[in-house]
Amino acid sequence: MTQGTGQERATAAAVAALQHARTIGVRVSVALVDLAGHELVVVRDDGAPGFTAGIARRKAATAAAFNRPSAELRDVQERRPEVLEVAGEQLRFRPTTLGGGLPWLLDGQVVGGVGVSGATPEQDTECAEAALAALAG
Results as ranks from 00 to 15, higher is better:
34 D>I: 05
114 V>K: 09
10 A>P: 02
14 A>E: 05
23 T>V: 11
45 D>G: 14
30 V>L: 02
100 G>L: 02
45 D>V: 04
48 A>F: 02
24 I>D: 00
99 G>S: 13
131 A>C: 10
65 A>T: 10
61 A>I: 06
65 A>D: 03
27 R>K: 12
34 D>C: 10
31 A>F: 05
5 T>N: 04
101 G>N: 00
14 A>V: 05
6 G>E: 13
102 L>I: 02
78 E>N: 14
127 C>Y: 01
4 G>S: 08
9 R>N: 01
132 L>Y: 07
62 T>D: 10
95 P>H: 12
132 L>Q: 01
91 L>M: 09
40 L>E: 13
125 T>E: 14
124 D>A: 08
50 G>T: 14
73 L>Q: 09
35 L>P: 10
35 L>V: 11
68 R>S: 15
75 D>R: 14
120 T>V: 01
137 G>Q: 11
110 V>N: 13
12 A>M: 06
32 L>Q: 05
122 E>R: 02
134 A>T: 04
18 L>Y: 08
99 G>F: 09
51 F>Q: 10
126 E>I: 05
47 G>N: 00
133 A>C: 03
50 G>M: 13
55 I>N: 07
102 L>P: 06
80 R>E: 15
128 A>Q: 03
59 K>C: 03
41 V>P: 01
124 D>T: 06
85 E>W: 01
135 L>P: 03
12 A>I: 02
14 A>I: 06
135 L>R: 11
136 A>M: 05
45 D>C: 00
98 L>Y: 08
137 G>L: 07
131 A>M: 00
129 E>Q: 15
30 V>K: 04
117 S>G: 07
105 L>V: 11
112 G>P: 06
93 F>H: 14
35 L>D: 08
92 R>T: 09
26 V>Y: 08
33 V>K: 02
56 A>F: 08
3 Q>G: 08
73 L>R: 09
68 R>F: 13
94 R>D: 14
47 G>S: 03
6 G>N: 10
135 L>V: 02
137 G>E: 05
82 E>C: 04
137 G>S: 07
65 A>K: 06
127 C>G: 09
100 G>C: 03
93 F>V: 07
6 G>I: 13
102 L>H: 07
94 R>L: 12
37 G>F: 03
64 A>Y: 00
108 G>W: 08
47 G>P: 02
64 A>G: 07
50 G>A: 15
110 V>H: 12
22 R>Q: 15
24 I>T: 02
29 S>D: 09
135 L>M: 14
112 G>S: 04
64 A>E: 03
104 W>Q: 11
21 A>Q: 13
86 V>P: 00
44 R>F: 11
15 V>D: 08
109 Q>I: 11
102 L>F: 04
62 T>V: 00
94 R>V: 14
101 G>D: 10
2 T>G: 15
135 L>Y: 06
17 A>W: 01
96 T>S: 12
85 E>A: 14
61 A>T: 02
134 A>G: 08
123 Q>F: 06
31 A>K: 03
35 L>Y: 01
24 I>H: 04
85 E>Q: 15
7 Q>H: 14
31 A>R: 02
60 A>Q: 01
82 E>H: 05
110 V>C: 12
59 K>H: 05
27 R>F: 15
122 E>N: 03
